[in-house]
């Protein structure tokens, strides 16, 4: 399988990365080189093979359903580019 310019731009949209036409052209070649390389997986017989979900067999750990952390609003917004009163500020989303 390979990708064309339209697909590259659609994927960039999904990935939320602005891509100029020039970048898209370059990316098309690079992505196709990688997709060409992974193509060899199609020759492996995977019938009846379970997909890996956990590399070390273990039971999912669960913690008690209690509040164990919190009261850290200042810490959470400390690194944000724009905030006001412990809220993250973003451009207008709803008109």
């Amino acid at each position: 399988m390979s990708v064309d310019q339209t697909t590259v731009k659609r994927v960039a949209k999904l990935a939320r990365i602005a891509l100029s036409d020039e970048d898209a052209a370059r990316m098309e070649g690079e992505l196709n080189a990688i997709l060409g390389f992974v193509e060899q997986l199609s020759e492996v017989d995977v019938s009846g093979v379970e997909p890996m979900t956990s590399v070390m067999p273990m039971e999912m750990k669960k913690r008690h359903d209690v509040v164990s952390d919190g009261g850290k609003a200042d810490d959470i917004v400390a690194n944000a580019p724009e905030t006001t009163d412990n809220y993250f500020l973003v451009p207008k989303v709803v008109e």
Partner: peptide, 15 residues
Amino acid sequence: DAYYLRAQKVRTLIK
């Protein structure tokens, strides 16, 4: 299915 699921199956075989 063609990519990710297949790759995870191959991973099982490698292990």
